[in-house]
Design a protein around this nucleic acid. Structure first.
Lengths: 258, 258
DNA sequence: TCTCTCACTTGTCTTATACTTGTATCAGAT
DNA sequence: ATCTGATACAAGTATAAGACAAGTGAGAGA
């Protein structure tokens, strides 16, 4: 069988895209450039690109150019997805088991974040393909929590359930040792390392609407952060030193000072 | 591969703002001045500035000018100062102590990443105010490593030393238990949780130039990621939750399936 | 002290150019 | 019949260059 020109070009482009030769925020060479580079006509190059578009690897905008679809142009670098949506995307059968559902007096941290005295606390175990992979606790302001039922929470994510438009979120990632309760739930040894993520989600007006804590077993999970442009330093970006005695309080103080 | 002019200008401005070249509250150079400085039109400079405004880094008032928006918490933490610049800002004295410096046969992982048989391995202990806060190991391709001296490495960061333009980086964040060696260096208990970051840094051409591992004591450090727009309907971009047993391979497989 | 003026700033338009993709046509090769 | 090459044109984008309105601030002049 004679091999088609545009197929071999598509294969080569796929290889280059998957090897990350074309970074996020930038376009592929233009059709004309590719046409010259491969010594093929623009028709053929287009056919190759459209083949790759059908695969979902690339996309284009008229007048702008072609770009790798995996890393959308729009990302201002921080536009990162949430853990939940990633899992949903990755095709595993996600399952939620509600361990605890009820209104409580807000613990100090939740009260500070949400600004409510009474909150709905939901503790869930998240499973992927039947295996536990995360223990999540979510605190919701009383007013918003009243709209939610235990069954809904087991079925859907909070983002889908809450009647607010979600704005930004700040997520802290740290490490900790598994408590006995978490160890049992996650089927790991007590004291073994876990990733602990704390997330504050705000609505579009900047009001905190969700406060959540996620515990992941370290052996089974890790975060991968893509940094399109690296700052000139060796230390991983985004890391912040937390001094128990002053760290967070200091951050708040600085905020007020201005 | 083309890149957008206003994006590169925005990147440079962001760097200058975050390095506190423009004090909070004080104004930036005027659009005309920036336009002349970057040899770009005012339209382009404005686009860059408005991009940064969307990130919350700067703001403007008609007739007055552009100024750095002071609140550090609203800054995109993905780009926010590195841990060392934060340390310097808070008045802490950062110090590096080289533990080990020498050329070795590349371990399997480093070889796979860097594609070299022989590499320069530098192990360092980073201290803040005399207190150890990170144990860092860096592997550099032999060719690049030959230019470096032990004294240089103790004094400066690799980004300052290496004669390459740094492009993107991929960083994995995981949790682990402190080994006895790390525990001693970091002055923590053996087996206590640590954050482990593995970073692959590439130059602008996409060639891996640095492979590094960072170990942070969990009690003293945490990662903060700002997610400016949490849109569940949007495809996740930067952060991926990786399952060791299947994650990366599956990710690639899934991509092809589309 | 008050007011006016003037230089400078951002905000918002135009117009022009070079470059991009989107689409169509026609001709030749296999 | 299909793939490929060559070409032309429409439509969209990024950037440049400039004009003008409106807001700001400082200094001149009363």
């Amino acid at each position: 069988m004679r091999e088609l020109r545009y197929r071999t070009i598509a294969d080569d482009l796929r290889r280059r895209i998957e090897s990350r030769e074309f970074a996020a925020g930038r376009t592929l060479p233009s059709e004309s450039e590719l046409s010259a580079a491969y010594d093929a006509s623009r028709v053929t190059v287009r056919k190759a690109l459209e083949w790759l578009r059908a695969e979902g690897l690339v996309d284009s905008r008229q007048g702008f150019g072609w770009f790798a679809a995996g890393d959308p142009l729009r990302q201002s670098l921080g536009r990162l997805g949430t853990i939940e949506s990633q899992l949903a995307e990755s095709g595993v059968v996600a399952e939620r088991r509600v361990l605890d559902f009820g209104f409580i007096r807000a613990p100090a941290r939740a009260k500070a974040v949400l600004g409510c005295d009474t909150v709905l606390r939901v503790r869930r175990l998240n499973l992927a393909d039947g295996e536990p992979f995360a223990r999540v606790t979510v605190w919701v302001p009383e007013q918003l929590g009243e709209e939610l039922s235990r069954a809904e929470v087991e079925r859907s994510s909070f983002y889908e359930l809450l009647p607010v438009r979600v704005g930004r979120a700040v997520q802290s990632i740290g490490a900790a040792a598994a408590s006995s309760a978490d160890a049992e739930l996650l089927e790991i040894a007590v004291g073994s390392p876990v990733l602990r993520c704390e997330r504050i989600t705000e609505d579009v007006d900047g009001k905190a609407v969700l406060f959540s804590e996620h515990i992941f077993p370290a052996l089974r999970t890790e975060f991968v952060v893509d940094l399109p442009n690296v700052d000139p330093s060796m230390a991983p970006t985004g890391v912040r030193l937390v001094d128990e005695t002053q760290g967070k309080a200091q951050g708040r103080r600085r905020k007020r000072a201005q």
